[in-house]
Design a protein around this nucleic acid. Structure first.
Lengths: 202, 202, 202, 202
DNA sequence: CAGTAATCGAGACGGTACGTCCCGTCTTTAT
DNA sequence: ATAAAGACGGGACGTACCGTCTCGATTACTG
């Protein structure tokens, strides 16, 4: 955060510092249970037990169960790679294949929509989630920006809207249509987004 | 539902009949609370109290809280109109404008993602929800079919996928991107879906 | 309470009535645990488990753990018999022997002082306890009243004070002096109370 | 405590010596809170906070909460004076008046019964408390011994039992009967103890 | 038209998770 | 080594909700 590294990060203040070990164990246990039993069968007491931690140690860090789950799943986000194949079609294909794979192999399919729903009602939560959702979109945005600089897309394109057009069809299918969608089937959706739905032949 | 509709399909049998009034009051109270406090802060006891009904009267009709919410929200669906302007662009614009308006003025913004999340975890629920989600897509599917018969779209197009490409961007923006999106801003998304994201100029 | 017995006790009010069975099971379980593990190792959850009852069923009846214990021990009081031998000395001996036996074979030795201490600080609790403590003294008071009517005691004697003089030495020994005191050793204390400490020969 | 009091009895060893100031502040804070909130709503953290001390500083001196409270309350005891009027009646009156005054103006009314109750459950605590309770009785025992040597009491009297007969009525009234009892009302109880309850006229 | 049976509002039931609080210990930096 | 500060594991507390059950009181059909 600082430019010159001179200062000692932050003053730790008096008292025993919070255990980084416990912090990690809690998040790991949360993700473990999330994938095992799902969101609402996950209990804070079970997380504490699995992490070898007291409940108070959890509540000292997160005000309730939901923010804990939010942070746990947010640690998964950096795994979204930023591809650089040199052309937009292949880049987008890779980004979407990654995304589909994560959704289908982690509890995100359960947690993401719940967060979206809660966020729609609770502005505080929404502002907590905003940067996380934004981070999730970042690789996609970068891919599109590079496409612009390569003149594959017009310079005045609305990149945010374009991102929605790319992600949307896949998101809709994963969460609402319920149709099967492996990573290998994202290609037609990329083409449709780029060139129009006429490309969607049977 | 039956072909000869002259009289009550089945003999009602002995005993006091179920109150149609109570039924409606329960659904209305459920929707009310859904929009007020959200899904999991909604309690069945509160629904009962608001509807002036005993809890057993609710559980006599729905096996648990979730199906109750599902039915309550499904009563909102028929308001999606099926437009028929004669060309695909205007039809799609109208369908999407309707959809955006409903999402932004009813508790569906909260309920829909939650149901999607729960459905991802509970296959029984998923199969309950499938026809409801399908009904929601129906106007869009019909619009696309008519476009095919008008030769505006190729005859071998994958209509289900096309529907996802149309709806997806709007859905993504409404539920996850969090950006503003009034009914008047759906037009660029329709064009992008039809002709590709090159159309998305600033 | 009413003179003519016509009315049906009390209106039960709507809704499922509280289970008398559960009530008794809770009190029995409380006494059981009180004697097994003592006051503060007794947990409400354990009481619930032992009684085969939900915790809420306990908290619906008693606001917290202490009042529950109060009521549980108060059910023990009626076992204090009211003797009637015809003379004050034997009557008092029997009352005190009963009292000592109860203290030494039930958790009252633990609970009574705690209640006294809490009552000294909390007026609400004190007024709850007052009738219970009074009931405990009742047999002793009656014995003294009968002694007055038999002219064994002067008619203008302060009976409440006399009761303290009778009970006090035994109470003090049981709770504070810590000396051994079986039921068979109460006799000298009765005589001392009646005739003065000169009677307390080794 | 030692006969030659010139310097610290033991070599203080290396390191910072324990703060005598902190010690006193802890005991004062304990007594303060005891009278304010009672025994089990008193928390060690609150004592530490009020004393301006870390919790570890408390646990370095006392193994747990109870011994801390025991020591705090035992500091109150030395104020019991040993009267010497020359006759037993006045001596006892003074001893009891002192006792009543202390109970009614300090948190002892709360602490004493609680300690008695805990002691009944925990033999270790009981043996810790025994010398304290004994010290409290010491002035009374001395008064009685002097009465024996003055031939006011028979030489073979059971002094321990006599002490219970003297203290008991007052204790019972203070802790369990709940009746008013100022220092000026102890006289009848002294007389009753000495000569029998016939003296207790209205 | 009396009897039967399912319904009603109300609210208690067993069970379980929540989030808070406290105990007694441990871990930091500072003196 | 002790100090203040405060986090730690553990565990009880009292609250809230779920889905079921039990009341007395309707409200229909059935015989």
């Amino acid at each position: 955060m600082t430019i010159s590294g001179k200062q000692p990060e932050v003053s730790p203040g008096p008292g025993r510092p919070r255990s980084e070990e416990a912090h990690k164990a809690i998040l790991a246990a949360t993700l473990d249970l999330l994938s095992t039993v799902g969101y609402d069968r996950l209990t804070v007491a079970a997380v504490a037990g699995l992490a070898g931690v007291g409940k108070a140690t959890i509540y000292r860090r997160w005000p309730s169960k939901l923010p804990l789950v939010v942070e746990a799943f947010s640690t998964q986000i950096p795994t979204l790679r930023l591809p650089d194949t040199g052309n937009i079609v292949d880049d987008l294909n890779e980004v979407l294949r990654d995304f589909v794979e994560i959704i289908e192999t982690t509890p995100l399919a359960v947690v993401l929509p719940i967060l979206a729903g809660e966020g729609a009602r609770d502005p505080v939560l929404a502002s907590t989630l905003a940067p996380l959702f934004k981070a999730r979109r970042q690789p996609l945005i970068r891919v599109l920006e590079r496409a612009v600089s390569r003149r594959e897309l017009p310079p005045d394109i609305d990149i945010e809207a374009a991102a929605d057009v790319i992600m949307g069809p896949v998101v809709n299918r994963l969460f609402f249509t319920g149709a099967d969608l492996g990573p290998e089937r994202v290609k037609p959706f990329v083409e449709a987004a780029l060139f129009g739905i006429n490309r969607l032949r049977a």
